[in-house]
Design a protein around this nucleic acid. Sequence first.
DNA 1: TGCTTTATTCACAATTCCTTTACAACTCTT
DNA 2: AAGAGTTGTAAAGGAATTGTGAATAAAGCA
Lengths: 224, 224
Amino acid sequence: MQTILVIEDDESLRDTIGVLLEQEGFKAVLVGDGRSGLDQALALKPDLMMVDLRLPGLSGMEVCKQVRAAALPTPIVVLSALADEVDKVLLLELGADDYVVKPFGTRELLARIRAVLRRTGPERTRVVAFNETEVDLEHRIVRRRGEEIKFTPAEYNLLTFFLQNPNRPLTRDLILNSVWGYESYPNTRTVDAHIGRLRQKLEPEPNVPRHFLTVHGVGYRFVP
Amino acid sequence: MQTILVIEDDESLRDTIGVLLEQEGFKAVLVGDGRSGLDQALALKPDLMMVDLRLPGLSGMEVCKQVRAAALPTPIVVLSALADEVDKVLLLELGADDYVVKPFGTRELLARIRAVLRRTGPERTRVVAFNETEVDLEHRIVRRRGEEIKFTPAEYNLLTFFLQNPNRPLTRDLILNSVWGYESYPNTRTVDAHIGRLRQKLEPEPNVPRHFLTVHGVGYRFVP
DNA sequence: TGCTTTATTCACAATTCCTTTACAACTCTT
DNA sequence: AAGAGTTGTAAAGGAATTGTGAATAAAGCA
């Protein structure tokens, strides 16, 4: 499922867009200010992001700039108020892929999103990296300091699930459901055991985890 | 005020629930059959609905299905008779958020309602900030001056409860009920201890609180 | 002020929760 | 069919959390 990050401070508009996107089968992540927007963009690596120009704190333009500075390939659609008198050329130079002027209809918004997604196409990031390890999703290879590490299917699935959901505490039940599926019902200790194996292979100090953190009483959290 | 729609064909039970809810400050809308229940649900968009499984006309299950088909986000609590041998998994898959087996105590019912409302509740705000701290509800992360602070489950639950009820004096009993729930009955000193821990972590001067204030003889009050 | 009630703080034990290890069952390969 | 690798689970040990009581402090009140 494609993820779209929406950075918009008007709460009601934000929610509207959120509902709209989810109806259309996207996963929508909503934030209200530039700072968290930028954080989310870097962590989530969404398939597309929509950025309001006028934002509290970090401005939309600043967010674009920093996203590009981080070499994220994520396409950006800018939302701007009519009054803003945007310099469109500047905007596109900043790295935006399209812009929509408020107020806009849902129909138009969706059309723009689809168009941008089509243009920028499905060249997903096939390699994810954190700390000293890189995961090549396409070839299903994990390297640490350039050296290949073997992963069993269960371990690898768990790892990629974490990669897709960084910085968020994931409950054991959620992990079981997502990685093992609805069909099988292993007990939740199983997750712990596998976390242990991940740590063994990927943490510099397996007993002082820096990436696969436990959130006591809740579950686990991966921080890249 | 939060509106709760009750769909229950047993008139006396229906009235009992109605009175109970209104005592607790909810607005209760009562109907006796599935058809009108569904109509009301779509028209009212209540904050929560309680649905009896056995209903004349449209069954409770059918109501759930249709409500979900209409993409209403309203949480649903199902009421079922002991004899009904409910398939809980099926129920939850149908879109119900919780179920209560008849006969139930009023205490239990209220607790369930509160729990569901809390779960599904106003988690629209993803990041809340006050003074130098920000709480990222989605990531369950609390930061102070940008630095992450660890919170235990009890502390975190208490904190978010305060965030959701700012500027209002909250009695210890209310806090216990809301945060700890109905299953456990810790004594009210427990709340004090936890308030202390919150202050320790979040107040600039823990012994001169500016956010987690005590209301002598009453309870506590959070001012952002 | 002195007295009573209420709140804070601290240390600690009970409990809950997590980690690790070992191992048996199971699945593939050969 | 044996062997190698994988996986779920149980059990033991360790760590973190949490409720409580007792000592102390603060607030309210006459």
